[in-house]
Simulated assay, not measured.
Amino acid sequence: MTLVGTAATVVLLRDGADGLEVLLLERPRHTGTFAGAWVFPGGRVDPEDYAAAGSLPPDLRAEPRSPAEDVPAARIAGARETVEETGLVLEPDALVELSCWVPPLQAPKRLRTWFFLAPAPDGEIRLNPGELIDSAWLTPDAVLELHRGGKMLLVAPTFVTLTLLQQFPNAAAALAVAAAAAPETYSSRLLDGYEPDAVIAWHGDEEYPADGAGRPGRRHRLVMRGSDWRYERS
């Protein structure tokens, strides 16, 4: 199945009493994309976002093209979705590229999703009542513990992003490292033969297909059994 579009996700950061905090939003439990999951603000990049960025949408561009051509429009979409979902206003230029996520072939909806970090602006959170039912500012450690206890449902990109953010003491440190590094691409592949676990692998894992970079014993994967998830990276 081919990719059917591009999306943007914004990880809002602030400093709390216990260190770095992120904003998570709860999706309705019975309908919509990621039903019941706690996610970062974000959504699909619309044709209007490409127009505002001064570029053509993918279906009108000549091939081959670089996925990075979508980043200016994704920044605009990320800022737009953030204000639509939370009421918090961001400038697109405040978004710092973090990663790019490509769903596995088996996913029912395949959107290439750009993840950005951004410092949280001042303002009161006003949730879009049609799309969201709750919000919370929490440390990455706290979110992952709630997930393990079955009290917060996460999806794989959210889980991995939170795991990576655990290393930073404050928002400034996370933003500085992201700004100095090239965004990493996570092109996901589901591995067979690990039932009852579900295993997603990425570039560098020894079992990542058609890779060549994964030496024997190397790990870059997420192992999932119920709410007991482990991100393994050599």
Results as ranks from 00 to 15, higher is better:
T2G: 07
A7N: 08
A7I: 03
V10K: 03
V11S: 03
G16L: 11
A17L: 03
V22Y: 04
R29D: 13
H30P: 00
F34W: 10
A37K: 13
P41L: 01
P41M: 03
G43V: 01
V45P: 12
D46E: 15
D46Q: 12
P47W: 00
A51C: 00
S55M: 05
P57N: 00
L60G: 08
R61A: 10
A62I: 04
E63T: 06
V71P: 01
P72Q: 00
A73G: 02
R75S: 01
A77T: 02
A79T: 07
T86I: 10
T86Q: 09
E91C: 10
P92Y: 04
V96R: 07
L98E: 09
S99V: 04
S99G: 07
W101C: 08
P104K: 15
P104D: 15
Q106H: 11
A107Y: 12
T113W: 04
F115I: 11
F116E: 08
F116H: 13
L117R: 13
A118K: 08
A118N: 11
G123C: 12
I125E: 13
R126F: 06
G130K: 14
G130P: 00
D134S: 15
A136H: 08
T139Q: 05
L144F: 04
V155D: 13
T158M: 06
V160C: 05
T161W: 01
L165I: 09
P169S: 07
P169E: 14
N170V: 07
A171R: 09
A174C: 12
V177Y: 02
A181I: 01
E184K: 15
Y186H: 15
Y186C: 10
S187T: 14
S188M: 13
L190F: 07
L191Q: 12
V199N: 01
H203W: 02
E206K: 05
D211W: 07
G214M: 08
P216F: 08
R218K: 07
R218I: 00
H220W: 02
R221L: 11
V223A: 03
M224W: 03
G226L: 03
S227T: 13
S234R: 11
